[in-house]
């Protein structure tokens, strides 16, 4: 029997060890460690856009976690999200005119709700509402602001179609913007290979409000900033005649590949340029070898 009892004791120890390891993992290495402890109260907020915010995301004041997102639901009949915040009872003194904002931790991190205090002396109550909110900033919009990409305008006035032929359209996609003087005036309808040649035919849908485009204007494929999307830019010419439905641009400038641009900076040109590859091979130093 002593033999059996020692097995029972050993097995018991083993099970206890296993469960304590589990408790350690669960409490010390996971987000449970950040979970609110004790009582909390609910506060309602409304956002026009919650972005990637998820339930259980942190709620922070001055960067310190004070609670978590309890629920996110769409307000019926409105383009608005109701976000319920569960805030720790220790933080009872949030002014009722505070501003709730959806922030992103770092450039690519998770989103959280940040509360910036207002000046009111009355704190927000259980079940109350933080009325002032700022919605999630979409990364695309922020980048768009930097790079001037912007989106295609609404086509309220109808469109007319003109075509342009490019030797290289780069990454131009249907739906990309068409701009004149940086102002969107239409969008790319289709990008197809012209039958029997190596050129691409791009059909542009241009708003009828901008029908006065000289017929000797040139079209170019540009890139918004360094990593932005590509668009078609129209540089007006001096002709008194205007482009009409079905016409095509005479002058076009193809897309510049980023690689080519960078290659121009380098003394030896683009190593991917196969046409002169044989001649360059002898003069080009072996970069890899030197490094």
């Amino acid at each position: 029997m002593t033999q059996r009892r020692s097995y029972a004791v050993g097995t018991g120890l083993f099970i206890v060890l296993g469960f304590s390891a589990l408790a350690y993992l669960a409490t010390q290495t996971t987000s449970v460690a950040n979970a609110t402890q004790g009582a909390s109260y609910m506060v309602e907020t409304h956002f026009a856009n919650v972005g990637q915010l998820k339930t259980r995301a942190p709620v922070k004041i001055a960067g310190v976690r004070v609670g978590s997102v309890q629920s996110i639901e769409l307000v019926p009949g409105k383009e608005e999200a109701k976000v319920t915040l569960s805030i720790d009872d220790r933080h009872k003194d949030i002014p009722d005119d505070s501003v709730a904002t959806i922030f992103t931790s770092g450039l690519l991190g998770d989103q959280y709700v940040g509360i910036q205090f207002g000046r009111s002396k009355t704190p927000v109550k259980e079940g109350g509402e933080i009325g002032l909110t700022r919605p999630a900033q979409q990364l695309e919009e922020m980048l768009g602001k930097f790079f001037g990409g912007g989106s295609a305008p609404d086509r309220l006035g109808g469109t007319f179609h003109v075509t342009a032929e490019f030797t290289n359209v780069g990454a131009l996609q249907p739906g990309a913007a068409v701009k004149m003087a940086g102002v969107p005036i239409g969008s790319v309808d289709s990008v197809v290979i012209k039958p029997g040649s190596s050129e691409a035919t791009v059909t542009l849908g241009i708003d009828k409000r901008y029908s006065q485009i000289p017929d000797d204007s040139s079209a170019a494929v540009f890139t918004s900033g360094l990593i932005g999307s590509q668009y078609v830019a129209i540089q007006p010419g001096g002709s008194p005649e205007y482009l009409a439905e079905g016409d095509s641009f005479v002058l076009t400038q193809s897309a510049l590949q980023l690689e080519d641009l960078i290659g121009k900076f380098l003394v030896n040109g683009s190593p991917s340029d196969n046409k002169s590859g044989g001649a360059q091979g002898s003069t080009q130093p072996d970069n890899a070898g030197k490094k």
């Binding site: 589990l22 993992l25 669960a26 010390q28 290495t29 996971t30 987000s31 449970v32 460690a33 950040n34």
Partner: peptide
């Protein structure tokens, strides 16, 4: 080391659904 771990690791997804 610890704060990044605790911020990202999820009890349900990583421990319950993962290990257990």
């Amino acid at each position: 080391f610890w704060s990044n771990m605790t911020a990202t690791v999820d009890v349900h997804k990583d421990i319950v659904n993962g290990v257990l």
